[in-house]
């Protein structure tokens, strides 16, 4: 190997969404005091990079775009075993949607690539706060790297011959793809079982200070960053519409009676009754389904 291969993991610090509450009156989020965590989907992404480090001695860099406190997420990555970490932080990046996020990360990755050419970028399949799954592909497209999403197994990688083979899962198939490096992978949780942080790495992490970049040293156009650079905006947030029906609680002296009343209620439901009375109508909605379900033609 001519040089040490370089694997970059893109991570995000996210609010622990399980802890978030909604103000029932205003419909707004109560975010104060919500703990932040390393996006759970990013942990297997990092683990996959660390396995490459174990096998090939690759250099592993973690990178995040976020506020200064996102440093904690990077320290977490170092605790797991990342060699280096980059924090891309600047006021101008606040409020970025996925397009503006991939713009900034792309510029930072280009800078990183100039220092240590990047062979592989690994991302989690999505974050738990945005849930979009759009950032990994967006970065791949901007970098002109091969885009390989929902990867469940990294079967082979050859840094010299510049090839990679992965298995990916979709709703209907399992595929094996062979592609070229450099590539961007997004990985599903099932790809591996992340390790625990080792004691020496934990100690290193507590004192670790990431490399900090801002808009200037990554040569960012402020008009393409943050809110300004985002084509999408949130126009309003609201609580999900309330249910418009009452639940009929079925109680009776004995269970047989209860069961029969449930059967009555089911058979009496307008949609179910209509479908049972006019199976021809039912056929309309149902017709298209089997095509997608049938396993033939594989």
């Amino acid at each position: 190997m001519a040089r040490t291969p370089h694997v970059v993991v893109c991570v995000k610090q996210v609010p622990d969404t399980t802890e978030i509450r909604i103000d029932p009156k205003t419909g707004t989020l109560q975010r104060a005091g919500i703990p932040s965590v390393l996006n759970p989907y990013d942990v297997p992404a990092l683990e996959e990079a660390l396995r490459l480090k174990d096998r090939f001695g690759v250099r592993v860099t973690a990178i995040t775009m976020g506020p200064p406190q996102a440093k904690e997420a990077l320290q977490r990555c170092v605790a797991y075993g990342a060699d280096e970490a980059v924090l891309l932080t600047d006021r101008i990046m606040a409020g970025a949607d996925t397009l503006a996020t991939t713009y900034a990360l792309w510029r930072a990755l280009v800078k990183l690539d100039a220092e240590h050419p990047i062979d592989l970028v690994i991302c989690g399949k999505q974050t738990i706060d945005g849930d979009t799954g759009q950032v990994g592909p967006g970065i791949a497209h901007r970098l002109g790297f091969q885009q390989l999403t929902y990867v469940i197994r990294l079967r082979e990688i050859d840094f010299d011959r510049r090839t990679i083979e992965v298995e990916r899962v979709t709703e209907t198939a399992r595929e094996v793809l062979r592609s070229r490096l450099p590539a961007v992978l997004t990985v599903v949780k099932e790809i591996n079982k992340p390790r625990y942080a080792s004691l020496p790495n934990l100690i290193r992490a507590t004192r670790y200070e990431p490399i900090v970049w801002n808009g200037q040293n990554t040569d960012l156009d402020p008009n393409l960053c943050g809110l300004k650079g985002s084509p999408t905006i949130v126009s309003k947030t609201f609580a999900p519409p309330p249910r418009d029906h009452q639940c009929e609680m079925i109680a009776a002296a004995d269970l047989d009676q209860v069961a029969n009343r449930v059967v009555d209620a089911v058979l009496d439901h307008p949609v179910i009754r209509r479908l049972r009375e006019a199976p021809a109508v039912a056929g309309v909605a149902r017709e298209a389904a089997p095509a997608a379900v049938r396993g033939s033609g594989g």
Binding site: T98, L99, T102, T132, Q134, G138, A140, T149, Y150, T232
Partner: peptide
């Protein structure tokens, strides 16, 4: 999701997920 993300980045437009 895979396709929409790539296309939105190619034509530089907004994409709302899910």
């Amino acid at each position: 999701r895979d396709l929409a993300s790539a296309v939105a980045t190619e034509v530089l437009t907004g994409l709302t997920a899910d």
